[in-house]
Design a protein around this nucleic acid. Structure first.
Lengths: 160, 160
DNA sequence: CTGAGCGTTCAAAGATCTCTGAAACTCGAC
DNA sequence: GTCGAGTTTCAGAGATCTTTGAACGCTCAG
């Protein structure tokens, strides 16, 4: 039978596994570990000290990871009542936010295509390649934003 | 006035700029440079030798990059008539393919959420966080595939 | 005002990843 | 079957990125 200890242990293992996947997908290893630790924590929030201990990393590393996660909207600093310690929490709708941030990337791709077209026109082999690229990223930029909104509505409705 | 040389030169600069962006987004630097070189080339295809020379990298590096790009569906090897040299070409709909590959990632995220729920259930702070995550990635997986198909149809229709 | 507790910063150590250069290999032409 | 252009592989060099550990600084309690 599962007691609370076992559950924590297994959750941490899952957290580490996901962190590994994410780090292979380009995210920094420590950043990913901090994020998944918060994601799979049974507590509402965790302090920097708890993250240090749980992940066996230095406070400097935690500080760095946290300050990389906050601007992306994945986690937030929670004002700690009656304590100077910072508490961190995985944000609601963090995944949707993360995906929404991709729009910046989509926009750069569109821009890159546009820049090339400005130089080479829309004719010829380059022109046609770039035209397709621009069309694709224009489409994605429009539709992705709509898609995420749609999820938010659907999810919020389901909660009520 | 733009002559052909200038155009090539400017295209190459744009290619490098995009490669830099992509490499910051997690792609390998050389891989990104090879990809953008093919993307912004005014030729239909390029040989490995041309890529070496144009990017000032060793043939080993080209080989590595190319073999990383091919499985993703971004570029393809083109049978060269009457030459042993390999010719490489940026594939049609490469961007759509690339985005479609993300589905694998979306699926792993869904799996990670499912695994956590199996351990901790859907109640409590972890359970609710994971439930939201699973809902989001399930939604995205379904909708992204549909979205890409929609683009393909729309684009192919526009070409006809 | 002073001290304790925490978070942040930064230089240096360390780990990781990538490129090069050369040797090995492949495959078509003759 | 042999030659040779061209590609792939791989060990070692090199560049890059990360983490640590310690010093610094900030904030609140007393």
């Amino acid at each position: 039978m599962h007691d609370a200890e076992d559950v924590d242990q297994e959750l941490r293992e899952h957290a580490e596994k996901l962190a590994l996947t994410l780090s292979q997908g380009g995210m920094q290893k420590t950043t990913a570990r901090v994020m998944t630790a918060l994601l799979f924590s049974r507590h509402e929030t965790m302090t920097a000290g708890e993250l240090c201990e749980s992940l066996r990393i230095s406070s400097g590393a935690v500080s760095g990871a946290v300050n990389q996660l906050i601007p992306t909207g994945m986690i937030e600093r929670v004002p700690a009542p009656g304590s100077r310690r910072d508490h961190y929490r995985f944000r609601k709708h963090a995944w949707a936010t993360l995906m929404g941030n991709q729009n910046t990337l989509l926009a750069s791709m569109w821009d890159a295509a546009a820049g090339g077209i400005k130089i080479a026109g829309r004719e010829g082999v380059v022109g046609l390649r770039l035209d397709e690229m621009q069309d694709f990223y224009g489409f994605m930029q429009r539709e992705m934003a709509a898609l995420i909104d749609r999820w938010r509505e659907q999810y919020d409705a389901g909660q009520a």
